[in-house]
């Protein structure tokens, strides 16, 4: 009694099985790429934690002597607080300006414009994404800031009762409101591009359902396109928010910085963002000051992570209604 025939057959089956040759290579490439992402993320987080640790554990006296511009008798949290505030305020303002505009442009491209015009418009928007942020900084500094000064002082004079426009409008225009506009322009392309792709993928079936009920163009958009694109819009906005939170150069060049919890976005010397702050102070920092800057970087990292997880949660919450089933 020999068992070689069945075993040979089993081997032959295995050889003809699916996990051979290129399949196997491809599987390893895919798994490897996935693991690599996790590894990079973990490495960044570990680096930040490791380098930030000395600053996080140091006493406030120690920090005050080592770090320039560190106020006396302040904990690290109180020190980083205004920076977090400035970062969030700038990013949220930029998002508030960019998102409606981006959705409008995306809808125009996907559902209103004649095909040829929509293609040209699509290219133009993508081109905006290719402009380096230094250029945006220069443009903001030399063109936009002087241009908006009269607008900001008008807002300040007549709508000063609104908290954001209160205070004293800066004569230079180098204020957070101007930064928010530049950031909005910078994140506009990514939000537009992602929303446009999502809108174009609205199932024909749903569009026809709306049209057959007698929907006008806008009603078609409202009943079929926007509900379908909802999670895509949120993802797009979060991508934009991520960029706005981390944007360094344009903020650095335009904003006249300050370290206050202030809603006066027309006032100069009120706000600073984490990324611009790090870039500004890093060249002259040494020792514990470097660790302190990295600790603020860690805070930015955590904020960005939290924003992304928040967006996921929003998208997942109404999964039942998403149309994925």
């Amino acid at each position: 009694m020999t068992d070689s025939p069945p075993r040979a057959r089993a081997r032959a089956t295995r050889r003809r099985g699916s996990d051979r040759g290129f399949n196997r290579v491809f599987r390893w490439i895919a798994v490897g790429s996935g693991v690599l992402i996790l590894a990079v993320l973990a490495a960044v987080a570990l680096f930040l934690l490791w380098q930030a640790w000395p600053a996080l554990t140091a006493g406030s006296d120690e920090l005050a002597t080592a770090v320039p511009r560190y106020p006396e008798d302040t904990s690290f949290v109180a020190y980083v607080g205004p920076l977090v505030f400035g970062t969030l305020l700038a990013a949220i303002l930029a998002l508030a300006i960019a998102t409606p505009l981006a959705i409008g442009i995306a809808l125009f491209i996907s559902h209103y414009a004649p095909r040829r015009l929509s293609q040209v418009l699509g290219y133009l928007v993508d081109l905006l994404a290719a402009v380096p942020s230094v250029i945006y900084g220069l443009w903001g500094f030399f063109v936009l800031a002087p241009f908006v000064v009269p607008i900001w002082s008008w807002l300040n004079e007549y709508l000063g009762w609104f908290p954001l426009f209160a205070g004293e409008a800066s004569p230079t225009g180098r204020v957070l409101a101007t930064v928010a506009i530049v950031l909005a322009v910078m994140i506009l392309p990514i939000i537009t591009a992602v929303s446009r792709e999502v809108f174009l993928q609205t199932p024909k079936l749903h569009e026809e359902a709306a049209l057959a009920l007698g929907a006008t163009r806008w009603e078609l958009v409202r009943t079929a396109v926007l509900p379908f694109g909802r999670s895509g819009i949120i993802s797009a906005a979060m991508l934009g928010l991520g960029r706005a939170l981390g944007e360094t150069m344009a903020v650095l060049m335009i904003l006249s910085p300050g370290f206050l919890y202030s809603f006066h976005i027309l006032d100069s010397a009120q706000h600073q963002t984490i990324a611009a702050y790090i870039a500004l102070d890093f060249p002259e920092a040494s020792g514990l000051a470097v660790n302190t800057l990295i600790a603020t970087g860690l805070v930015l990292f955590v904020i960005t992570l939290a924003v992304n997880m928040g967006a996921r949660a929003i998208v997942a919450r109404r999964k039942e209604f998403s149309g994925a089933n």
């Binding site: 026809e208 509900p227 209604f321």
Partner: peptide
């Protein structure tokens, strides 16, 4: 189209709407 209703080959209720809202979709339009 408001006068002439249509039913398609593949069922196409609005996926983001509840059953009730689906029935009312045309009325609300």
């Amino acid at each position: 189209r408001r006068n002439v209703g249509m039913v398609f080959q593949r069922p196409n209720p609005f996926p983001t709407m509840s059953i009730r809202d689906n029935v009312l979709a045309g009325v609300k339009l």
